[in-house]
Design a binder for these strands. Sequence first.
DNA 1: GTCTCAAAGGATAGTTTTTGTCCGATTTAT
DNA 2: ATAAATCGGACAAAAACTATCCTTTGAGAC
Lengths: 153, 153
Amino acid sequence: MQITRAGEYGVLGLLNLARRAPAELVMIDDVSRQEAIPKSFLAKIFQSLVKAGIIKSTRGSGGGFALAKAPEQISVLQVIEAIEGKIAFQRCQQEEPDCEHVGGCALCSLLGEAQDSLKEVFSKTTLADLLKPKTAPGQNHRRGNLQKLAETN
Amino acid sequence: MQITRAGEYGVLGLLNLARRAPAELVMIDDVSRQEAIPKSFLAKIFQSLVKAGIIKSTRGSGGGFALAKAPEQISVLQVIEAIEGKIAFQRCQQEEPDCEHVGGCALCSLLGEAQDSLKEVFSKTTLADLLKPKTAPGQNHRRGNLQKLAETN
DNA sequence: GTCTCAAAGGATAGTTTTTGTCCGATTTAT
DNA sequence: ATAAATCGGACAAAAACTATCCTTTGAGAC
Ligand code: SF4
Ligand code: SF4
């Protein structure tokens, strides 16, 4: 039971974009450094977000990423599901149901409820909401050991 | 984002115990067969549940497991946390915080909220609740391929 | 006491997921 | 053309999950 790093990195990366001027193009390298996220990993994550239509990318010299919509219109759920795939507690209700039966399992409905309640929280919160609090801008999220990053990047 | 099989197996196994007479001793082998759960895996899972005080075990001939409390007093949250460890979305708020800073991260409070809402659902539901629905008893949960089990067990 | 049965507990192996890196291809600005 | 930057796929390392096996321990039956 764990939100993956990829998901967290994604939200944190988007928040970094959201703090800037609406259409400013930012290179992956900048976001990576500022948020202390491994560059190549963040690149992969941003690719998913592009495919999901949450950010748009510009290639070539002077290129980079920018939000495709206003921060108010991007929910955390969208971001997480774009990166980690759909949140689904019930193995039975997936393509390739790993546990057929699906009809009478006592757990199914409970897992469904749990999952809905989780999605509810994530879907009602937008990037704009996350930007508001007293969080000192730029003072967000620092990894355990950034030494490695500082050296190699 | 996934409840593990271990957790599901645990709940399913307990439900099997809960369907019987209050203090009836049941061997792991029986539960394993009836719920189509790999025997040795279930044994490990039940060990955690014993340690957590949710079931009690009796060794030796004629031994087995039985619930240590009434089904009404066992919440799904207790079961899951006994098996999978405490539900914790925030890596920062654990022993060995993998991501120090803890003070101003925009995500922290959201993750906390998500986690609370999930725990709420699991903690308000007891084994007794799961027993009630129209679920045909004994007709619960069947794995993808039980052939392997049927052969080897 | 000893034999058998069943759980306890530890070691270990196999698989899958997550985390991350690398590199060639592609696109764009200069 | 050249340099800059993302795209896309392949790949590697680490961690988590799933599962099995085996030896030990405790309890009952004889
Ligand atoms: S155990 Fe119940 S909830 Fe879990 S996969 Fe099987 S049917 Fe679905
Ligand atoms: S990113 Fe924020 S929430 Fe996640 S671990 Fe770091 S501080 Fe905690």
